[in-house]
Amino acid sequence: MKPSSSADAQQRESVSEAIDLGAYFERIGYHGPWVPSFEVLQALMRRHMASIPFEAVDVMLGEGVDLDPVAVDRKMIHGGRGGYCFEHTSLFRRALQALGFALEPHLARVWIHGGSHAPAATHASLKVEVNGRLWLVDVGFGGFLSSQPLAWRPDQAQHTAFGTFRLVETRDGYMLENRYQEGWWPLYEILDFDWQPIDFEMANHYVATHPRSLFKRELMIARTEDEVRYSLSNNRFTTRFAHGMTQERVLDETALAETLAATFGLPVGDTWQAMIAAIVARGDGGGDG
């Protein structure tokens, strides 16, 4: 985040960006030191992704997504909910900044769904500096990434429990790629630009409200532990074990509601039942999530 031009602006910004670190650490089950070290960054990322699921239920229900920090914290820290990339990035960024980490938020074009034309910039991630080294930190890309920082080292393959990744320089920034069979598959292109808060607001508005937003029609939920990742694509439930096998099953209404609550810790209420019924009735199992 860039410094404000006046003391008053800095004070307003500090208040609006404030986070209750104790409550956040309790939410994710973190009990380690409060210092800006790489070990702390690793631990926080692991605990965050294991405790707060990726989900965009509010978009599917037509309720929108509010990026005001108070709304994000009320929902994700105190409300037992998850969120999607803009919410996760907001929460994790503010926690890291409160600990003294230096970082930059970035927008990215998601290429994972293919297409020949450049997609809109609809994803948010972080570049974090620790002891002079840069890291890609992303806690909000659903079931596609591992729960560990990736070194900001272009062209270097990096092996994780849930895949091999690399950054490749492009005309507009850096493409994050995933090793797939004998080749590399693009995930998203991080745009090298001096992004401002309003840009994230606009991108969030598009993803949360545009009729063609993927989250308007697809239920995508994910939670990643050290040795296992759970994901839902509509009513298809997938369990991926680190470095190993994958299990899948298609859920009926009862099982889908139970999985949302038991596996992902989400507070399934009466307002979700019509959505659950519609997803199961559609019966296509969804795409990857």
Rank of each mutant, 00 (worst) to 15 (best):
G269R: 09
L232R: 05
V268I: 09
A262V: 08
T239G: 12
H205E: 09
D226K: 08
E218C: 04
A255K: 08
A222G: 01
A261Y: 05
A255D: 09
M245Q: 07
V228R: 08
T239H: 07
T238D: 04
H210P: 15
D226M: 11
G265L: 05
E258T: 06
S231Y: 05
E201F: 09
L219C: 10
E227F: 09
L219Y: 10
A203H: 03
T238W: 02
Y206G: 08
A222Y: 11
K216N: 14
R240D: 03
T254K: 08
F200W: 10
A255L: 02
R212N: 11
S213H: 11
I198N: 12
E225W: 01
Y230L: 07
F241A: 10
L214Y: 11
S231R: 12
D252R: 01
E218R: 01
F264N: 13
L256D: 00
E248Y: 12
T209G: 10
E248I: 06
E201C: 11
T224H: 00
V250S: 05
W195R: 05
L214F: 14
W272H: 09
M220L: 11
A257E: 14
A262R: 11
V228P: 06
N234I: 00
H205F: 15
T224V: 15
L266S: 08
H210R: 04
G244K: 13
R249Y: 07
V268H: 10
T224K: 00
W195C: 03
E225L: 01
D270H: 15
E248S: 15
